[in-house]
Nucleic acid binder design. Sequence first.
DNA 1: TGTCGGAGGAC
DNA 2: GTCCTCC
DNA 3: GACA
Length: 715
Amino acid sequence: MEKETKEAFFDELYQLDNEDSGEEDQSNASVILPLPRSDVSARTPSNQIVHSSRPEQSLLRTVSAPLPQLSASSPCQANVVERSSFSPTPSSKPSEQVIIDTPIMAKTTASVTARKEASKTIGKRKRGQSLELKSESQQIFNGLAFYFIPNNDTSIPRKLRIRKAMEWGALWIREWRDGVTHVIVDKDLCYDDVLKTLKIKSLPSDIKLVNDRYPADCIMYRFVVNEIQPLYRVAGHDDAVMVQQPPTSALSSETSLQLRAEKQERLPPPQTPSRTEGSELTSSGRVSVDADFAESSTPQRITMPSHACPQNDLDKAIAEAQVTKDLPLDMDEDEYSEESAILDDSENEHSKEEKQRKTKSKKGSFSKSWQENFSCMSKHDGVGTSANPNARTIEILQQMADYYERDQDHWRLTAYRRAIAALRKQARKITTEEQAFALPFIGQRLASKIEEIVWTNKLRRLDNTSLDPNAEVLQLFMGIYGVGLKQATKWIDQGHKSIPELLEKAHLSKNQKIGIAHYEDFKTRIPRAEADRHDQYVRETCSKIDNTVQFTIGGSYRRGAADSGDVDFIVTKPDATIKNLRTIILDRVIPKLFDKGYLKIGLATTDKVDGSKWHGAAALPGTTIWRRIDFLLVPWDEIGAALIYFTGNDIFNRSIRLLASKKGMRLNQRGLWKDVVRGCNRERITQGTLVEGKDEKKIFELLGVPWRPPQHRMC
DNA sequence: TGTCGGAGGAC
DNA sequence: GTCCTCC
DNA sequence: GACA
Ligand SMILES: Nc1ccn([C@H]2C[C@H](O)[C@@H](COP(=O)(O)OP(=O)(O)OP(=O)(O)O)O2)c(=O)n1
Ligand SMILES: [Mn+2]
């Protein structure tokens, strides 16, 4: 019944969005409350059914009902306390389940259940009709009933707030009545305004009065936060209550500490910190480092505005901390502003103007060709990626990224990832919007977020996000081999919270079972020295069968990493075809490796005749930790493309592949192709003709990418 | 305002 | 074809 | 969310 209820909400939203003036028709008194299927007839007779848009589908009825009087004892109180149980208790009084008359919406269910990506499209096409309901586990407002009091000027943004709140499970009560759990007041309104609007003398103590920031924060934290905080206080309301609450003094003091720490951090010039990839590994001398690699340890200089790098004296630090204390710590509007950019075409002139002021073209340089902006065009050696001065900023941005991952907002997530990667590469702390904006993959919005993080440290967030248990569980589940975002989310929605629980109750694929059985093994990094031993072991075994087969370890190992997540073998043999290799490796070497007890299990192997991958697990003799092992079988003529693919990193690959496609070509693990014919709907019709596959460097050349040794491909 | 890597297996 | 997961 |  949950779903149907949401559909009706959706309908209501549709109505909302179609109000041209934004003026509320207050005479159309209506509220929405769910109506249990079994109770439809029992509960409706007292009300006159006027019209229902989809009576056969919807469990809601459109009713004009006399509005119940507000009483001090709200029957929805229970919902506030136990918001997990939404089931309207039969005893609960407000049984009138009322909804306004709504137009019929086509494809409601499709829109509701569509993936974020898809529903976004729908939203665009139909101007915000889509209500992107969150998955069950994300319905944080379930059982809460919000009454919104708008600031007269801002009816449009308010609609977005309402929409958002509903997406996260809130009921929107349009008419003041019994059962309201929260009154949400737009900023600039005070308690007196509230009383005036509601025409009441005082607000019942069980109804929470909060400002418009409250739902935004709850959504951000994915948790119904304590509303008794100065942050959410409505001016003139219940000062006594607020005083009880520990004020944010902890926050401000910590902030100032942080600021001071920053100053200290800045004192010594940025040193080249330890790093995971591209290090010289002097002890073994195994990684050869070319000349320009060493030079790269010079930190990239960023022209900083004079105000960007405050002096290190204590006074200034304290002054800054003081300023910080009074800053509104605004995460504010985060959830909304992005939408308003899409949905409110012309509204919001004020904030738009403000943005415009800063809007400048990202690249001041004019003659720079478009392809210069691809990651793969520049050297990325990973210097200074650990112990990064921007670690704290990255940490916060990562939390944002995690949030959007849960939200299944794929592209925003990758945008955050790229921004984080860009930040990680900086040798200096990025402290201002301008500095941040100058970086690739950091635009206006992220730049201002970064500055905000630097100044406020965003500590508020940690208080509540740690309380979101799903975030951790999601990461836990997604760490299982064979489990992605969808499966993990599904399990969480089913209520699973731990791996033992999965073993007991969830249906698991074969691979997932193995993934669980060796969860820790597969998460353990492989020291470079062990990777070498794998290399040796496999070579030796194979040489007894065919000593012309060549093995190269790709992946992070080839990029010079000190440790790797797995061992990526690139397997080839002079003049061999894929068929030859399959015969040797799949039919003989791999069975032999199994016989010797090295290989433990196959996880994914391409059954196709020309399949070129084998994925499994192995453990060296005398060791117990299972390692993930990849064999990529590569025909002699494709070794160049395969090396590019299997050397990565992932960002580099995506970048260079995108570059290829922009040049009308296609780069995959088999080669560089041209004349790729794409159909009207962008589907590939022909795979094109092979340009080059054999020579790694030639492929770079053909694409106009300066040669990058593996160590410099850590984008 | 449309893109954002490409492939393979399961359905 | 779509969805999901992987490299 | 960035970018062309
Ligand atoms: N999204 C991805 C992930 C990986 N790869 C390519 C580049 C990688 O280098 C190679 C091997 O994948 P791994 O997952 O093994 O990644 P790495 O070897 O780079 O890192 P790790 O140390 O985790 O193994 O596959 C890719 O093209 N796209
Ligand atoms: Mn790897």
